[in-house]
Design a protein around this nucleic acid. Structure first.
Lengths: 156, 156
DNA sequence: CTGGATGGTAAGCCAAACTGACGAACTCGT
DNA sequence: ACGAGTTCGTCAGTTTGGCTTACCATCCAG
């Protein structure tokens, strides 16, 4: 029946990638429709890792598994566009503290709403229970991977 | 307890992205260690979508959700590096048929082995049953998303 | 047999990551 | 208290991986 399929057939990697991209696309589309048209996919990773109380660029870079230069560029764009702001860190003259502006908080609320809606659709179609189980498994897996990450390659 | 966490906290998107990247990284690292050092992440998507019996570039581009030009570039690199080969399509003078070389098949076997090993680790740590459930859910979700994709934006 | 659709290629652009190098500021041992 | 080494952020340059626009060659339907 499936002679025409690839040999690397329903690879787990592909199964994970597809819903990830679906979420990103939906969140971004909704944000664009709400007047936040200058946000791009990579900007979402900044919001994902910025603690509510604020945080430093280097800290964000580590969490997002990227270099501080790359994160610095993203932060620059978000500051220019008015989503977050830089302040001097009173405890460390080298460091900056990043905080969301009101506009930044609005983005966060919108993103959460979009994700919630999408998850609700999926729960409706496939079962809330199964979605919850899958989510719980991925959450545990995330902890496992975090542990390994700190063992092995520190992200500079 | 978790006052220091982000507001977009354990977002489903991030939970999906992390294991996806872990798989890609592992597969690629193993390939590099086995003498296939010229492969880069994007090349894996070609292998993922190329049917065992061969296929056309345009067909691959559609499956991978990218333009035929982008896919063409990846294919070029893989042909140059000797992983796949181009042949004229006897039924259509415009078209080319792409097939894996022996070296290409070796990559495929190595990738499958890496993924298998990684999944085994995860099953060991978190439970084979839960992994299987999660995989099944993602598989169903993939079908759901495929259906929506063909409704809406056809990828040109 | 011709006019539009389709398969593939070419050229140029841009976003998003990387590496290497660096100055300013912190920390710690002496 | 001060010099050596480390860490924070930034600058400059490069690579990767995608996109758009434009084309030519070929197929196919009327």
């Amino acid at each position: 029946m499936d002679e025409e399929n690839s040999v690397l057939d329903p690879m787990l990697g592909a199964l994970l990638r597809q819903p990830f991209q679906a979420i990103t696309a939906r969140v971004l589309a909704d944000l664009h429709a709400c007047g936040y048209g200058d946000l791009r996919p990579s900007h979402l990773t900044v919001f994902q890792h910025l603690p509510a109380g604020g945080g430093r660029p280097t800290e964000l870079a580590e969490r997002a598994q990227m270099t501080k230069q790359s994160m610095g560029a993203l932060v620059d764009q978000l500051v220019t566009a008015g989503y977050i702001e830089r302040a001097a860190d009173p405890r460390d003259g080298r460091a900056r503290v990043l905080r969301r502006t009101e506009r930044g908080w609005a983005v966060e609320r919108s993103a959460r709403a979009s994700i919630g809606a999408l998850e609700a659709e999926w729960a409706m179609a496939l079962g809330a229970e199964r979605l919850a189980q899958c989510r719980a498994f991925l959450s545990d897996l995330s902890e496992l991977l975090d542990g390994e990450a700190s063992d092995a390659g520190p992200r500079r």
